[in-house]
Design a protein around this nucleic acid. Structure first.
Lengths: 236, 236
DNA sequence: ATACTTGTGTGTCCGTCGGACACTGGGTGT
DNA sequence: ACACCCAGTGTCCGACGGACACACAAGTAT
């Protein structure tokens, strides 16, 4: 598909530069910045071509001179919003503190742009900075004895957990404690859901983080078990 | 909001029954079934009021006699598609086999309805069967020494992993191995992403499951570490 | 100076979406 | 026989993503 290829070229920088230097205001970067402003302020649902164009005092069709489709616009937004991947080489203590640092940074980025978790799910184009984030995490697992597939699975597991706990991205099997409606209904049907009712009761009012710290520690503990098993002789 | 309350009542069964027995064809169940057919066959994106109505040989506005909004239709679809929550009481071996069984069943359900993972993310109404699934998993953790918040966090962690690995729901930080485009681009920029390139190379052609088994085992191992720590004296 | 080309933004149109609202026509209770 | 009631219809609306033909500027060739 033509637009798809175009998107790849745009993201990865191998598209021909415009023969003449852009002489006027509208650029991909300005469009992406405007779109990110809209998304940060009013959510991804408000990011329409017309909204973004209006913020730039321009017709929506003008955007299509710089961006092939809305999907491509979103891809550029993501690539811009994730920022430069972190350098974890200075983190002492081995893979675990490095992954913790990585996760904290990613979480912070996603906190600044609450639409990112949802926008980065589903089939879509992936840009170099986004890949750079993964590169950093995979590299942090070098020397653990895990093979390539395991390292990538581990990073996927961790980033998935960040996504799941971040902002309002996921409901359903989770923060009932914060949905008063569901809490009420749970209490009304407490005979039908005894374990849940008991569990919800016991954490009444406690500050919640959507299971972020819990899941992180469980995942890292699980990785530690595997890594320990892979190096039966602790020679270092 | 009126429609929201209505949705709760509809899902949880406390709405007044129609005074007269429904005399004609269209019912919430038939609508939900038709919508699920559309979603299964052509994806959630094709589930529009008009599409669903067409499948029932009816005007789209007729659906609004039985469903307050599209959001409510989706809620009913989910509640119908998740099916009855499983009975894990017969699973021997304690919490871990029970959770494995639960996860397998949930995964199978979501495999049959690939739109479910995406549909169950974000703010939305939650129905009793969906809550029942969670109830089963939380109940499986009874007697582990985990407190209520920990049990719920554990179930959230596990279900989040299922969601992340299921179908095409998540891309981004993951199955590059299956996106030929990204693999190509990764190879072209191998000097920029050495760890990723090396990792991807080492798993060339291996059958992938999106990290499902890996993540499941890591999570369960991590839970085991915590549970073991909670019962320093194995007296049973 | 003039004509041509090229690239950037505009205006108009289309199909689809969710949904509001007024209607109609057949079945029911009186 | 009657009025009521209500499930389903028809029409309309604003917003969406996008196709397409056009206007218009600036730079180049003549």
């Amino acid at each position: 598909m033509a637009s798809e290829d175009q998107g790849v070229d745009l993201l990865w920088g191998s598209r021909d530069k415009p023969a003449r230097p852009a002489r006027l205001a509208l650029t991909v970067d300005r469009i992406a910045a405007a779109a990110i402003e809209v998304a940060d302020a009013e959510g991804m649902a408000s990011v329409s071509m017309q909204q973004v164009a209006a913020r730039l005092d321009v017709t929506k069709m003008a955007l299509y001179r710089h961006v092939a489709s809305k999907a491509e616009l979103v891809a550029v937004m993501i690539e811009s919003a994730v920022g430069e991947p972190p350098d974890l080489s200075g983190v002492p203590g081995g893979w675990r503190p490095s992954l913790v640092r990585w996760a904290d940074l990613m979480r912070e980025t996603w906190r600044r742009h609450p639409w990112l978790p949802a926008a980065t799910t589903g089939e879509r184009l992936t840009g170099p900075r986004e890949v750079g984030w993964t590169e950093a995490a995979v590299a942090a697992l070098d020397g653990t004895g895990l093979d390539g597939g395991e390292r990538m699975d581990a990073v996927f597991l961790l980033s998935g957990h960040i996504r799941n706990t971040q902002s309002g991205a996921t409901a359903g099997t989770q923060p009932w404690t914060e949905q008063k409606q569901l809490r009420t209904v749970l209490h009304e049907h407490r005979d039908r859901f005894p374990a849940l009712h008991e569990a919800a009761r016991s954490i009444n009012g406690a500050p919640r983080d959507n299971g972020w710290a819990f899941g992180l520690n469980r995942i890292l503990d699980g990785l530690e078990v595997l890594i320990a098993a892979r190096r039966p002789d602790p020679t270092d």
